[in-house]
Design a protein around this nucleic acid. Structure first.
Lengths: 352, 352
DNA sequence: TTGAAAGCGCTAACAA
DNA sequence: TTGTTAGCGCTTTCAA
């Protein structure tokens, strides 16, 4: 049988309550007694039993709030799956997880939802932030009240938030650059299609990609970045224009077969690009690398329409923020403060 | 406050014990009553509280045994880390995890260790199997006694084991083939260095690789597979012989710069190959893909000595078997029977 | 600063 | 077949 608080109490000649105070640093205890108890506990090989703690705390109605924006997108759907998995785990200990979703990115709605979470008495909140001053103000105010805030997917660096869970976007772009550098023939052209210039993660991926690729492959011709605004049709047009340029509308006798064209998608648009490649009849010499393992993208890569997908582990982006808050509120251990960067995964048609 | 057994008992006009019997299908209950209770529980939105269960079961001294072979190798070290992480989690519920390690692969010692675990009264066992009849016999006998057995890293298909956690080696070889196919110039030569012909996972990776690569890249010249027996010096010699063949000892004026040489390591040996490449002064035109994210390999890929590493998630190979057994013994839910293949990860110097 | 005691939700042994 | 009851290890309130 494992060592319990009672056994330590007996060995130390004090009550169970005193042992609890010592072990959990609750104060209201004679420092010397505390020290002695700590020593005895160590000697006896004491390990806390979480079940006991959870049960004793069950009356407290601990509640974790989660605010999700852009809940309609396939990527965020996967994040939500992660949140829900964490919720079922947390629930089994008797605690609640309240999820508020907003279909798009909307700072008004985000602010309202955060107010609701606060009003509902959440003891910790995970959120996809808005950068509006009022929103940031509320985050800071909540943090000031001792409610830990964890940002996910997108960060809010200069705020009272405790930590961030999400991707290192710059590095994600570099990973793509490394791959592109491996598969393109000398002197090939490279087209970069990004999502939205206002979106930090899209910007950073693009920058990481172009910086690194020009560094390692000076021979390549990297075309100016174009923005598809997360619109498949737009992505298709951008890609088609570039492919056209080379192969001509009705076949071209001067095709150089060695050189090829690389396309990097730092946001949505793979479906559009696929159509453009078909339309331009250029499939043989185009190498495509895209972000995000959405169901559509997975289908496309299985079908050979892209060489690589770069993933950012959306499941973890949902799961970990909730669990970080849970552990912190439930156990009494020091909180995680440093950002948790999710793994950057590389997928081909063989391991997707 | 959440719904509890007591509340259901009250609502149903029965005792808590009866509700427990109904909800956990323990029998000794009137089927109609059980059905009614189940219905009421559902209506009230009952969710079990694991903390309560864990606490009530704490006296039972539940013990999970783990048998690890080849514990000295860097790869298995990572597996053991996974086992230990699972152990700390399981311990917090008051249960024990007993780990027995054997430095090498040794069926005698493995058998002895399994006997010990059995004698120590483990309620579930995770193990890296031996294929010796006596070992298999003991596995079957334990399974027959209702002790669930989970194999990991290496499987024991035709036995009473419940499920397997490990890699799909054949697919791992195909992933490597897909990458090699992307990065090799036309008509290049490919050298495959495997570990041991008796080792199923090495064999399967090699087969997956050569089959797939010859399928997708008929132009390549895949040399006969050679075995390095997990010996770095041997790997170095094999690689050096092949590289020699082309570049000559003291430089060669007829080097064709377009064509290159691909080396696939389906087991250990990257350090040796690296040395061979240096010795042959062939670094410019050699493309290396190796298995396993050992610390040495990570160092080498960071240093640019290989293009890709294929990982098999050793942490999960240790963590999951223990957790599968824990969940199964602790909760009363249906057990996992189908193999759990760990993710095949692709790493470059950028995302390792 | 310390002790005593109630109770968290559940299981299981025993009684009916 | 059902009810009763004694805990499991811990937290927390109240009293000393």
């Amino acid at each position: 049988m494992r060592v319990t608080l009672n056994q330590i109490a007996e060995a130390a000649g004090v009550s169970r309550g005193t042992v609890d105070r010592a072990l959990n640093h609750r104060g209201r205890i004679n420092p010397e007694v505390a020290e002695r108890i700590l020593r005895i506990a160590k000697e006896m090989g004491y390990r806390r039993n979480l079940a006991g703690r959870a049960l004793a705390m069950a009356g407290k109605d601990l509640r974790i709030g989660v605010l999700v924006q852009a809940a309609g997108t396939p990527f965020i759907q996967k994040v939500i799956e992660g949140i829900k998995e964490a919720r079922t785990q947390v629930r089994e200990f008797g605690f609640e997880v309240v999820i508020k979703t907003i279909p798009n990115i909307d700072s008004e709605q985000a602010l309202a939802a955060l107010r609701e979470l606060s009003a509902e008495g959440c003891s910790g909140i995970a959120l996809m932030p808005s950068e509006e001053p009022e929103f940031v103000g509320l985050v800071n105010s909540l943090a000031g009240q001792g409610i830990p805030i964890v940002t996910f997917n997108s960060d809010l660096e200069n705020s009272g938030r405790q930590c961030f869970v999400g991707q290192d976007s710059m590095q994600s772009g570099k990973v793509a650059a490394g791959l592109m550098g491996q598969i393109l023939a000398p002197a090939s052209r490279v087209l970069v299609i990004s999502g939205h210039p206002d979106f930090a993660s899209h910007r950073n991926r693009t920058k990481g990609f172009t910086d690194e690729l020009s560094r390692i492959r000076g021979d390549l011709n990297i075309l100016p970045v174009q923005y598809a605004m997360d619109d498949e049709a737009k992505a298709e047009e951008i890609a088609y224009q570039v492919l056209q340029d080379r192969f001509g509308r009705a076949g071209n006798e001067n095709v150089e077969t060695v050189e090829n064209i690389g396309i990097y998608l730092s946001a949505a648009g793979l479906d559009g690009v696929t159509k453009a490649v078909r339309r331009a009849e250029a499939s043989g010499s185009v190498k495509v690398i895209s972000n995000d393992l959405t169901d559509d993208n997975i289908r496309l890569i299985r079908n050979g329409e892209a060489e690589f997908l770069i993933g950012q582990d959306p499941h973890t982006q949902g799961y970990e923020p909730v669990m970080i808050l849970f552990r912190q509120l439930f156990e009494n251990r020091p909180a995680r403060m440093d950002p948790l960067f999710t793994e950057i995964t590389i997928k081909t048609r063989y391991n997707v």
